[in-house]
Design a protein around this nucleic acid. Sequence first.
DNA 1: GAATTCGCGGTAAACGTTTTCTCTTGGGCG
DNA 2: CGCCCAAGAGAAAACGTTTACCGCGAATTC
Lengths: 368, 368
Amino acid sequence: MGGPRKNPNPLRAATASIRDVAQLAGVSIATVSRAVNGISTVAPELAERVWGAVKEVGYVPNTQARALVSGRSHILGLVVSEIMNPFFPELVQEFENLAIEQGYEVFIGSSNCDPARTEGLIRRMLQRSVDGVAVMTFDVDEELIQKLAERDFPLVFVDKAPDLPNIRVVKVNYGEGIREAVQHLAALGHRRIAFISGPLQMRTAVARRDAFLRSMVELGLTVPNEHLVEGAHTMEGGIMAMQQLALGELPTAILCSNDMTAIGVLHGLHRTSQVSPGDVSVVGFDDIHLAQFMLPPLTTVQMSCRQLAAAAVEALRAGIEPDHPLAQQKEWQIPTHLVVRQSTAFPHGALPALSNAKRTTRRASVKQ
Amino acid sequence: MGGPRKNPNPLRAATASIRDVAQLAGVSIATVSRAVNGISTVAPELAERVWGAVKEVGYVPNTQARALVSGRSHILGLVVSEIMNPFFPELVQEFENLAIEQGYEVFIGSSNCDPARTEGLIRRMLQRSVDGVAVMTFDVDEELIQKLAERDFPLVFVDKAPDLPNIRVVKVNYGEGIREAVQHLAALGHRRIAFISGPLQMRTAVARRDAFLRSMVELGLTVPNEHLVEGAHTMEGGIMAMQQLALGELPTAILCSNDMTAIGVLHGLHRTSQVSPGDVSVVGFDDIHLAQFMLPPLTTVQMSCRQLAAAAVEALRAGIEPDHPLAQQKEWQIPTHLVVRQSTAFPHGALPALSNAKRTTRRASVKQ
DNA sequence: GAATTCGCGGTAAACGTTTTCTCTTGGGCG
DNA sequence: CGCCCAAGAGAAAACGTTTACCGCGAATTC
């Protein structure tokens, strides 16, 4: 079969194929393939001739054909909980930049916190033969993971995942940042600190709440039940949680499980006319870009989506590429840290001790 | 070549192929293909046998192979300006839902308003042989369009595009909503209304500003030069534009080219201590989800991203699918409408006429 | 009743690559 | 000088589909 092709589909876009390059360069298609892929066994002058031909006909390798035979598509899947939550676009952006940098393309899906939808997304991604999927949803359930683990392909989860050969996990150290936040509030003089969690069926929500409780215990502070409210990681959830808190004696400070909740709380505080702005300190979690533009700018615990994305991409590559240096690593760590802005202040009637100087310094160090 | 395959790659995931189905059902692979694709020429009982075998071996067609031979990948490209601007995640979400519903997958890219990046994105999408690309960036430049138009594949732009066979356009009727906004402000008693535009190299920004100016002229109102400020479609831009406005005599109302700008303006107004909240009315554009959670909730011109996404997907399909009913249509229209919330009020010292009743009615009709 | 179509299903080519195997050629070593 | 080995390049198989083409039996038509 070296003769002219019989009946080339005239409808198809007239894009140059490897054969055109081979013909122009006067070599076989195998040589073109090797040259294009930088395989060293091809003689330098031949490679040069091939590259010349590639340029001339504007050859671009067909990724579908390449994927078909090599079994690798160079596409990564990324599943996020809620694309409408501003944290995730930031994560998506970072993830995409990193992936592209390393020669991958990305399929993005938003699960909307629906396990069935998550499953559908991943199934469709697999059908498109992605090389691996990062499930950064903070809300995966056990049985879905089990189901996914059966077919074996590289998977990356957040926080927790079963110890299986193809599953890797990015662990976020919530305790660190949350402890900083609680200590910050305590240093300002707050004693009655409430916590608005995410939906408690999310493992992540539980982890953040537990980190809060541990930090409070460390400082010898107690948390009455009515100061432990379940939110929804949304603004609406923050508003409703605020209403619930307003039923009893208000805390002097509120720590929120994410920034959207905190924004809702700020909104709710404004509505509750019994309290004047600034009376109640509010701390968020995530440090989304929007946080610094709230009124007042939000003090929050930063979870770097850049680091998160970098860890996820690296973990995926470790699972995908046959001889990746970190192929054996199963766990990546991400720190969290407090960023102090203006939504936290001294509680009414509290006399600041030496924490005053400290606070000023910290605030000064935050770029406006 | 009907015998057993020689040396199947053992590394490859043991996923069933069309051959396994054919063998189990006792038919040829052609019949399986036809049955799976619902081609009517296959006898009902045979089709049933095939489907049984499909279920049994868990056959899933390989999209790469399918794309390779059919020339259609069933992947759509979507390029947005700025994934970090909350409007776009909403658009992405809608677009993705619609695309999936119709059997397509989506590659998403964020251009960050960089034409070079846009070009790179589209080039990479083409390399992945997407069936078409929707460029919803509000900032494409002429020469890029020209360059893209050379290769012919279905493209959809927003607002304006050259009249070429494979290019379709979704036109947003800015005038409508902006006129409503200006009339609303005028009815409240505002006369000095400022406009903060987007970056003026965006054609869209110019279109919105011109719509504003036309509406003002219609009402016999004039706009001094210092009340026409160029922003950046970001919160930072809104804050800076506000600072610029604060240099002269403040307007009583400010219309912004998008919601992020409006949020920045609210922020900036708060900082400007010479003015008390509520003194200056602010109107946004887009109606992002966040808008209703601002303090005060933002009156804004709604551009439905659902309609935008639906139009884009439909326009793409019209260009892709050989006998689509709308194959000849080149233009889709999207309306805009004012949504009144609490960021607009009577200007200081103005006596409301009969507009009072009207306003109350409208506000009551907005769901909280 | 014979000829012609028509419905249906199988065979094989084609899609554009990668990769294995094979062949040629040249050089080093005995 | 001959042999063996290595390097480099080509031939061809394989990847998993779709689809053009062909053949066969049944149905329709004159």
